[in-house]
Design a protein around this nucleic acid. Structure first.
Lengths: 341, 341
DNA sequence: GACTAGCGTCAAATCGATTTGCTCTCCACT
DNA sequence: AGTGGAGAGCAAATCGATTTGACGCTAGTC
């Protein structure tokens, strides 16, 4: 906005609080107090100081402030991959929630690899972030905490973590998956299969789904449970296995939407009608769920809300409004019936 | 707060370099030199120091280091919205490129709003980031630089910026769009239309496309040029306008994939066959391009490479390997022919 | 008139590293 | 013996803020 003068250009280094104090004829202390409001400063000197700040274009050095105050006004979010729309939306929810309070967002892509998780965890602790959101898969439970780590609040998405300051935001996968099971059973499908996540992941989805089917009097034979790797490609392959069985399923629940899309790919390749020949349901309700044909019947996984409530939980601790044991917020995952089942 | 804080201070405050020095029986200077390798330390004392570091679990305070060295080992990326897969992939490319060199990634969602852009720009400058990647739409050219801002290298994606240390990574939209135009013309389409981006955006795509059609001897009447807002919904609406014209187009080039998907939505709604009744082409080649039916003929926009080469450009400046005027890297955007045209 | 009570301000310590200049030792070469 | 140089390590200054204890002042109270 203001045209930078030659004077300003000459002094290439940043303006310090001392220079402002000098120009205003007061001490650095007073300038600091004007800025922070931690002690009262007379209106007269406050004006003088503010004028000097404006004239010099002073901006406080955030790093120096962070060193002294032991805060960074920055929160870290650890996700497997920001490229995954689910985590991108979660990250945005978090960023929106904390932005107004002046917190910035530091993003780490862990790829779900334990070494990367610990490396980044170390990194963000060293950087002195004020809070951490852990959305990096269930291996998160394996990170080990150093003695100094117990002051930084943490929020885990989708799981609990053994840490005194750790809150949890849990989308209710179990209930959502149960709803899918009930829905499929009520529609009269008889040979219902499932494409699960990789071993040890997404147990709640499997369990909820299986429980609903059992309650509806259906057995779930082991050969109708196949594992995929969350990706479209792996859903395609898992579906291929399922459809090569003697007794083809008439409905398939996939533990996430990407795998469901892969499953639809294969069904179309085989010339099968969805849902006429096979019904397919997913989980997450990402954008792509309404892009496939037919549109995907799925479960809404409230990623944006998960991110933003994680932000709220963090802020309540950082501001000292809450200082208790770990809280747990459960987010409902409603069924979204569309064309594919 | 009181007792809690006292406890904190007593038990769990971080180990400092001074404590390490004390335990090792050397000065802090020596410990620092062991860690940085900036001066030689004898193997014997180095071992002693390293032992002390391990025993105490010492981790250097990054904030303090940053204050002294005036570096933050952090680079900022400004995107309109991390939720947009294009920018998510770009961000990942950047993060991967700079991660190995120890740089972290600070993400800002500007929503393309000028006030937010300047606010975040100020924020990251105050935080002392070592580099900035500007991928936040063409309003970027309006940010104003303070005197202190001229030391931080910047890379712009998709445009140039008037700043001495600013490099640019430019995906070759123009050539890509020209390829689409040639492709459509060669396929014999005669009434070719385009859904553009919002006013003042994506001029290269419009120009390249138009040039190709003119070269093929086709006129592009104004009523076959409609504007959308980059979203699926806006593509749907723009397509509706196009199809309500007396002389319906037989092919439509959309300035991005999301709008193309919206256009396909409408075509299907009208019971039209794609590409039989209308051919549709997009731009970007996001994941969703292969999820729609039919799969989208589009232009590959190398977002990952854009992010990673932005990282390279930044690092070459930060490391002092390059110190010259602004460089420009142009990335090719090849046509990807699929089913929709 | 002496005595609190605030108010406004400042000097100095602090946060935890890095970096510079200096000392001291030891050895090699003239 | 003297000089030069390299090798090792330390003390102190520095980065740029925040924060605390103290001091001078004015006003109000007994």
């Amino acid at each position: 906005m203001s045209s930078d003068t030659a004077e300003e250009r000459a002094s290439a280094s940043r303006v310090t609080i001392a220079e402002v104090a000098g120009r205003a004829g007061v001490s650095p202390t007073t300038v600091s107090h004007v800025l922070s409001g931690k002690r009262v400063v007379s209106a007269a000197t406050r004006d003088i100081v503010m004028d000097a700040i404006r004239a010099l274009g002073y901006r406080p050095n955030v790093v120096a402030r962070n060193l002294r105050t032991r805060q960074s006004q920055m929160i870290a979010v650890m996700v497997p991959d920001i490229t995954n729309p689910f985590y991108a939306v979660l990250t945005r929810g978090l960023a929106d929630a904390v932005d107004a309070a002046g917190y910035g967002t530091y993003v780490c892509n862990t790829d779900g690899v334990h070494e990367r998780e610990t490396k980044f965890f170390q990194d963000v602790m060293d950087r002195g972030v004020d809070g951490i959101v852990f959305a990096s898969g269930e291996t998160a439970s394996r990170v080990t905490f150093g003695p100094a780590d117990h002051h930084t609040p943490i929020v885990c998405i989708g799981e609990h973590l053994d840490h005194p300051l750790c809150d949890a935001v849990i989308p209710d996968d179990g209930a959502g998956s149960r709803a899918v099971g009930e829905f499929l059973a009520s529609r009269g499908y008889k040979r219902i299969a499932m494409i699960q996540g990789p071993l040890k992941y997404g147990a709640n989805r499997t369990n909820g789904f299986r429980a609903a089917l059992l309650a509806a009097g259906q057995k779930v034979p082991a050969e109708r449970m196949v594992r995929g790797g969350w990706t479209r490609r792996s859903g395609y392959e898992a579906m291929a296995i399922l459809m090569s069985r003697r007794n083809r399923p008439d409905a398939v629940f996939c533990a996430n939407d990407l795998m469901a899309i892969g499953a639809i790919d294969l069904a179309h390749e085989l010339g099968l009608d969805v849902p006429g020949d096979v019904a397919i349901a997913g989980f997450d309700d990402v954008d792509a769920a309404t892009i496939v044909t037919p549109q995907l019947t799925t479960v809404l996984n409230p990623s944006y809300e998960a991110g933003s409530t994680a932000g709220e939980l963090l802020m309540s601790r950082m501001a000292g409004r809450y200082r208790g044991t770990g809280r747990t917020v459960v987010l409902p995952c409603p069924l979204v019936a569309r064309g594919s089942a």
